[in-house]
Write a protein that binds this DNA or RNA. Structure first.
Lengths: 157, 157
DNA sequence: AGGTAAAAAAGAATATTATTCCCTAAATCC
DNA sequence: GGATTTAGGGAATAATATTCTTTTTTACCT
């Protein structure tokens, strides 16, 4: 999937795209000082190789009635089937992230819902998944930063 | 900032944009059965009102040498200056998220680095921030789902 | 080194899209 | 119910995406 090597120009392009996913190809070309056709080919290869996974529109979740964010740790019974639990958790639309973590067999999930009542309903649904033993939620009061942008250094090739 | 009311059409547009932030305005217009100019006006207003916060290009962090994700809980001294700690944490490029959480005065931060050695270096830097008492990191072994997409129901207006 | 092959970039031409403007229709407000 | 505001449609224009061809660069191999 990733046979090509990433060079300085790729990193520059990726930084620009991470800053603003809606930037035009022509604009990238101007910024990096290359022809639009050349940049298009780069972006295309980055997409095909899986370096670029996609583009997301970031919405204001508070304004859309999802003002409550919580991180819930979910302990599951040890043994087989652990992956299946993760899949089931990922199916919930209010579950934004599902991470299987080291330590005691458990998942860390990020949940985004309307209010505490909705959180309670979601936790109840978690409980119906067979191997789930117990859950432990941490409510977010303020989010200072939330991003997926990875600044990529590209000074030296 | 948010005076206009969101209707069914807005929600449809937001769902399409969340699925693929790179989709063209013309394509959205075709999907929702409206003129491109009308859709453009909607998207423009959604952007101006802050409902649409921006667009991000999602990159493959593993392929770019940031294969290690960790959630670190950071306890800080109670009292003033707590917000400043959050700001300082947010300045680190390897810190993707900073959440101030309920319970014992603490932050939950999501960190994305190359390896455990880099994580150690980052934790050491956290320690240099004055009010930081101690940190507790949870290493992510597998990420099943990671998204910011909020599916918005739009059946009834 | 030299010469060949492969890859990348430039440039031009075309298709598609973004964007503006104006007009019409619809909703809203006294 | 009429005036005013707001949203949608349609056409025209500007900008962009995309393709194709040519040129240049890079890499490779003996």
């Amino acid at each position: 999937m990733n046979i090509r090597k990433i060079d300085k120009l790729d990193l520059e392009i990726l930084n620009i795209l991470q800053e603003d996913g809606k930037v035009s190809n022509a604009e990238i070309a101007r910024k990096v000082g290359k022809a639009p056709s050349a940049v298009l080919e780069r972006v295309r290869k980055l997409k095909k190789s899986g370096i670029i996974k996609g583009y997301e529109c970031i919405v204001n979740h508070k304004a859309l009635g999802r003002g409550l964010t919580a991180f819930t740790s979910i302990r599951v019974e040890e043994g087989v089937g652990a992956t299946e639990v993760g899949q089931k958790l990922a199916e919930f639309p209010e579950v934004l992230e599902v991470h299987y973590t080291a330590g005691r067999d458990s998942y860390l999930v990020k949940v985004r819902v309307e209010d505490t009542e909705a959180l309670q309903a979601t936790l109840a649904k978690f409980g119906t998944i067979g191997p789930v033993r117990d859950t432990n939620s941490t409510i977010v009061l303020t989010t200072v930063k939330e991003s997926r942008v990875i600044p990529l250094p590209h000074e030296k090739d």
